[in-house]
Design a protein around this nucleic acid. Sequence first.
DNA 1: CGTGTTATTGAAGTGTATCAAATTGCGTGG
DNA 2: CCACGCAATTTGATACACTTCAATAACACG
Lengths: 227, 227
Amino acid sequence: MESPKHNSCGTCSSLRKTHFCDLQKKALETLDAFKIHSRYKKGQVIFNEGNSPIGLYCLSSGLVKVTSLNAKGQNILLRLVKEGGVLGYRSLLADEPYYGTAIAQEDTDLCIIPKETIFSLLQNEPALALKFLSQISKELHQAEARMLGMVSKPAGARVAEALLILKDCLSNTKWTRQDIAEWAGTTTETVIRTLADFEKQQWISQKGREINILSRQSLLDIVSPEI
Amino acid sequence: MESPKHNSCGTCSSLRKTHFCDLQKKALETLDAFKIHSRYKKGQVIFNEGNSPIGLYCLSSGLVKVTSLNAKGQNILLRLVKEGGVLGYRSLLADEPYYGTAIAQEDTDLCIIPKETIFSLLQNEPALALKFLSQISKELHQAEARMLGMVSKPAGARVAEALLILKDCLSNTKWTRQDIAEWAGTTTETVIRTLADFEKQQWISQKGREINILSRQSLLDIVSPEI
DNA sequence: CGTGTTATTGAAGTGTATCAAATTGCGTGG
DNA sequence: CCACGCAATTTGATACACTTCAATAACACG
């Protein structure tokens, strides 16, 4: 693995994918001056439910999942963040404790931008604030859409959706049946039975724990059935 | 009914409850210059799912509900906005069409702030942008918490929650069993059976279509049961 | 090559949806 | 002001998708 070349945001390979891509040199230097680079191994916890945010996490590589405990004591996968994405901004901006736990799903490189730095940037860089506004607005949409799905779509459709999203996000990650269940808001047993069903329909194939999508369209069809 | 004294935001009775409360005189004058006052009677549609946002709605009085159609064709109540609240900002900021329909639940007075005006304000008033960031972040939390509840809490708990929220929001509004069902993500029949149950437990009383909460604590207990 | 984790299968139970039909409450116009 | 008619509410019976629990099988990892 190459050594982390994170002396400067300007040379970060993920800069162009981040919200900070359009910052002027001077603002980037401010970022550089205060950010703290950090590295997490697969499985390590980045922050815990209940913690108070100390800053914003910006991923330069890897994959992080944020899960939250529901009323039945099972975890639900709230979001996935990959390189170029930001993590922990919701709680930071709302000035609330984290309500989810962030775990490195793969080896992850990230920078922590201290609270004061990011708030100062947001105040001095209107374009940056607007980018955050736009992103959170989109996530709010996704969250509400997902809520609608949870009450109205059968488990099969939610499993299909989870499959597509997880595969899209990172296909080389070893997603377990439980990961799928946590996204779909159901149990592992239901996921297994549903996957067996999908296989019978020739929409996917399973060898061992691997899942291959054979007909993406068929899955999409049951996610959003055309009336 | 008094005539709408909406010549100026500075004299608006709801100003202090809005995100615009801390604006300097000059910025308020900009708002005044471009805003359009409008009035909706109970039941009237303010915007429809699929429409493109033309501006931001700021309520000076009344109550608006935003609902969205789910996969089974039933409506789900997404949010309630009362005086001082803003409406339609999510789609505006994300630059997406509305995915919900806004209906005046009561006679409503509001001002439409054109898209250009609000974006210009957000760029020139960092504090305003931060307020919006904070609000949307909180709503994202609520949406995700609600999603967790939808998959993990039994219908009874969701009905109790809906009761509390709808009553809190405006107790003098005539909420129907269907309104409750739309918030709880269930059917009117289940709501009725659940309410009958609550009445038997002496947590509420029903006379005709009226519902009175007798023991708020008991309802809270089943919403978030202490383990 | 064993040991713990993940996956699989089966049977039983249950919370809710669904459908249909009766009843009540409420606003409206005669 | 009453009666009418429609909408909202109520109740019952039935169905079923999904969870839950339990026990076995396959896999991956040291």
